[in-house]
Design a protein around this nucleic acid. Sequence first.
DNA 1: CATACGTCCTGGCTGC
DNA 2: TGCAGCCAGGACGTAT
Length: 285
Amino acid sequence: VPELPEVETVRQGLNQVTLSQEVQGGEVLLTRTIAHPESSSDFLVGLQGTAIAQWHRRGKYLLAELKGVRRAVPLSAGWLGVHLRMTGQLLWTQQDTSLQKHTRVRLFFADQRELRFVDQRTFGQMWWVPPNHAPEEIMTGLKNLGPEPFSEAFSVDYLAKQLRDRRRPIKTALLDQSLVAGVGNIYADEALFLSGVQPQTCCSDLKPEQIERLAASIRQVLQASIEVGGTTFSNFLNVQGLNGNYGGVANVYNREGEPCRACATPIQRLKLAGRSTHFCPQCQQ
DNA sequence: CATACGTCCTGGCTGC
DNA sequence: TGCAGCCAGGACGTAT
């Protein structure tokens, strides 16, 4: 389940291998994957003859800035957007590598290279944003994203103000991408454990010191995972198809009934907003 | 506006 | 052992 740290790891990997090479063609094996343009062939035509100048990340979205390669002065050639959703993977490979079962989109580069989008559950999406359009015009989800967790905008004051008048459980609020961008189910549970806050706590009941700990914990748990290549809690694969160093070191996620690593109390599981939620009833009050 | 919930999908797991 | 049914969840559309 790629969340911010995994997407950031993919971004860094793509910046190491995909830049400044001409897209010479491609193949869409599942048209539903292409969110824009409506026609898959228009998607491929838009990308053809461009090269990626740089990969960016916003929340869990990947954004490749495109440039024309057949001009002396490279012109803006729009954007390629990707959301991995549940099971999406971007793999940098050779075109003659046998296709994975769930291959959805292939982009062909020079020297028989390929950027391959593999996605078992087919929720993942790709967009081609034409030149002279802002990505958020086409990728409408971008408009509803809250601040990046590592930005100055994600301050204690911001979080306190946002939570003050909300009546939702804090866990549900953390999954809302308009509050803070990039946190998903795993990191929400882990950040709440680290901050000692029960996931069911009503947002407006949180005390100032809890909000302060929560803001710090969100950044801490995300940063720690980025530093080990996004493999802290999942069997996530990087662009080379490798799982660096699966840690399996979650404190609470997917540990129902197992002893809390801090106090040995059995970890409890409940359902919030339709999502499994794990916490230590002793450490989180 | 805030919030809740159903929906999309595949494959792994559970229980009969 | 086969197989139906449940579950996992990110974001969006719709309902309240």
